[in-house]
Design a protein around this nucleic acid. Structure first.
Lengths: 231, 231
DNA sequence: AATATTACATTTGTCCTACAAATGAAAAGA
DNA sequence: TCTTTTCATTTGTAGGACAAATGTAATATT
């Protein structure tokens, strides 16, 4: 009877593919593989790990998806440079993410929007400000801002930071917000939100104010949406 | 001769595995699959897509790694809830990330550290402040802060935000910084950095000051390290 | 008849073989 | 020496086989 054995742990329920994946990852770091370094071929890996080529290929397929390795048609495989955001992109399906994940992601966006203030003030140009002005002037005439309007304004802001990662991050995150809003604003039709801080206000502060003022204003601007979700 | 054809695009050089992966992802979203929903079995997928089971398994192996699907030993596969950060974790090998990725990640951390200010002031408790005080009091006596000390202080801050994603984010990002610092601080041995804003200062502001003051102070605190890297 | 046991069918995990396409290298020819 | 041809290597894809596991159906037992 094992019902009273001391240790009762789930232990190694990893599949062969999982273990090969780990072995390969370990192999890469142990041997300090750098981008461009050639990898042993599939058969050799299979033989050395004493598994079938199928299992090796399933593990390699994962690493290939992450961008860690590349295979040039018949020259074999080489180490590559993964794009950290590409991997997250594949998982950002609002329908299957947990509510807590969605909340965390929303908070992450709040932080980013406020955090880019310093970058905006450090890197803003007259030309970019003119382009932003066109956007807010157009939006001032609208009675209600659509999702596209929001994307246009906030996307332009990320654009002005000059940080490519931020831009991509926001384009990745937007579908998540879109889903959250549409799913939560359904019961009451379309709740018209009276914004205490409009896009035009933000623009004026960005043009003439300070980074601190901008952060404050952005916080208020976003808190409206934040409270909407929390309610 | 195709040398003068109008369009000259790389087109679809995707492997079957890539296309099956995309098809599956599309299939899931089109049919609004939610966690727990059962999936068709491998053979059926292979037949419907007219590919071999091997290819299907390679694609499924990727989705399984991302946590999108799970397979219970004999009952088949079901939709699961992926952890957005788990996928990025696998890729955070400082040796293979490009320099620009590392820079982007560092800027991202700067923004996060400054951005959590509001959350800290909104959610700080007397108990957490006491625990933080113990940390900074201990560190005040040290002539030089180790990586572990940095982790302890900043980790506690992320802890106090109550946002699990932030906590995990920082624990993921730390190895990257560790590598960057150790690789860059080697030539001159260990550069002693005189911090204009210490952990203790940050603690005092968090306890008695305002969110704005904290952000300012954190920016100065981190800029020291930032400049170290840039130099 | 109700329960316990057994047999079966289904599905994943793993292995094996085979072969086409591609491509660099080597061999053959001019 | 340079060009052309052949060959060997390696990945991509297909298909078959079988063990293990497990829910379900069938059978046996009390």
């Amino acid at each position: 009877m094992n019902t009273k054995s001391g240790l009762l742990e789930p232990l190694e329920s990893l599949s062969m593919t999982d273990r090969v994946e780990n072995s390969l990852r370990e192999f890469f770091t142990e041997n300090a593989f750098k981008p461009g370094d050639p990898l042993p071929n599939e058969q050799e890996i299979a033989q050395r790990l004493n598994v079938s080529r199928n299992v090796v290929r399933e593990a390699l397929s994962r690493l290939r998806m992450l961008g860690m390795i590349e295979t040039r048609p018949r020259r074999g495989m080489v180490m590559a440079q993964p794009d950290p955001l590409a991997s997250i992109e594949k998982v950002l399906n609002p329908l299957i993410l947990s509510q807590s994940s969605l909340n965390d992601i929303f908070e992450l966006r709040l932080i980013l929007e406020m955090g880019i203030a310093d970058f905006l003030f450090a890197r803003k140009t007259a030309k970019a400000l003119d382009e932003l002005e066109l956007i807010v002037e157009k939006q001032k005439k609208l009675p209600l801002l659509s999702k596209e309007d929001e994307i246009e304004f906030h996307g332009k802001l990320y654009d002005m930071t000059g940080n490519e990662t931020f831009q991509r991050f926001q384009s990745l995150l937007f579908p998540v917000f879109e889903h959250v809003f549409t799913s939560l604003s359904k019961p009451g039709g379309h709740a018209v939100i009276k914004d205490p801080v409009s896009h035009y206000d933000l623009f004026k502060i960005l043009k003439e104010g300070t980074s601190e003022e901008f952060q404050q204003a952005m916080r208020i601007h976003l808190s409206v949406y934040y409270n909407t979700i929390k309610a």
